[in-house]
Amino acid sequence: MDEAVKRSLACLLLACAGAAGAQALHDPTRPPASLAAPQAGAGAAAAGPAAQPAPRLQSVLVGRQPGGRSVAVIDGETLRVGELYKGARVTRIGQDEVELRRGGARQVLKLNAAAALGHGIERIPNQ
């Protein structure tokens, strides 16, 4: 009987040792690392260390009726036309884009992630 107890303990120890070396589980709901951390590329190096990451348009809700309310979510902040986002005024909310103006600079944020990589700031004359 002592031999059976020893075998049981040995099997238990081997099972615990195998579980200790197991890999951590992958979270399928976690966003890709490319979206979570800013990429160090040529654009980031040229902008300098003090440059803030570009705002990200996450959602747009446009009213169906003419003159209906439109709402945009930029970096988790819900905004309407005329409101300020980090010093830039929301001037237009479209089906898949939002226009921000800061002084003479205009910035268009797009919902499509591929198009968002190419968004930029454009200088326009003061009106």
Rank of each mutant, 00 (worst) to 15 (best):
residue 6 K to D: 04
residue 123 R to G: 11
residue 22 A to K: 03
residue 7 R to I: 10
residue 59 S to E: 06
residue 34 S to F: 15
residue 74 I to Y: 06
residue 45 A to Y: 08
residue 90 V to A: 01
residue 7 R to N: 13
residue 7 R to G: 09
residue 121 I to Y: 10
residue 26 H to L: 13
residue 32 P to K: 12
residue 3 E to K: 10
residue 31 P to M: 04
residue 36 A to M: 15
residue 47 A to E: 03
residue 60 V to D: 00
residue 49 P to G: 02
residue 7 R to T: 10
residue 86 K to P: 03
residue 96 D to M: 10
residue 127 Q to T: 14
residue 93 I to H: 01
residue 114 A to C: 04
residue 42 A to H: 07
residue 79 L to H: 00
residue 112 N to P: 02
residue 65 Q to M: 10
residue 13 L to W: 04
residue 126 N to F: 14
residue 7 R to S: 11
residue 81 V to D: 02
residue 122 E to P: 02
residue 29 T to F: 14
residue 82 G to I: 01
residue 2 D to V: 14
residue 8 S to R: 12
residue 72 A to L: 11
residue 48 G to Y: 08
residue 73 V to E: 08
residue 101 R to L: 06
residue 7 R to D: 09
residue 6 K to G: 07
residue 1 M to I: 11
residue 89 R to Y: 02
residue 109 L to Q: 06
residue 46 A to V: 07
residue 28 P to C: 09
residue 77 E to N: 01
residue 2 D to R: 14
residue 41 G to K: 11
residue 64 R to C: 06
residue 60 V to M: 04
residue 94 G to L: 09
residue 24 A to T: 11
residue 56 R to A: 08
residue 51 A to D: 00
residue 38 P to S: 13
residue 40 A to E: 03
residue 63 G to D: 01
residue 99 E to P: 02
residue 56 R to V: 15
residue 38 P to N: 11
residue 27 D to S: 13
residue 76 G to D: 00
residue 57 L to A: 08
residue 93 I to F: 00
residue 107 Q to F: 05
residue 96 D to Q: 12
residue 85 Y to P: 05
residue 65 Q to K: 13
residue 58 Q to F: 08
residue 23 Q to A: 05
residue 65 Q to C: 07
residue 117 L to I: 10
residue 57 L to F: 10
residue 5 V to S: 10
residue 40 A to G: 09
residue 75 D to S: 05
residue 31 P to K: 11
residue 45 A to N: 07
residue 35 L to D: 06
residue 67 G to Q: 05
residue 69 R to G: 04
residue 31 P to Q: 04
residue 118 G to P: 01
residue 121 I to H: 09
residue 108 V to E: 00
residue 76 G to T: 03
residue 19 A to I: 14
residue 110 K to W: 10
residue 117 L to C: 14
residue 119 H to D: 13
residue 22 A to M: 14
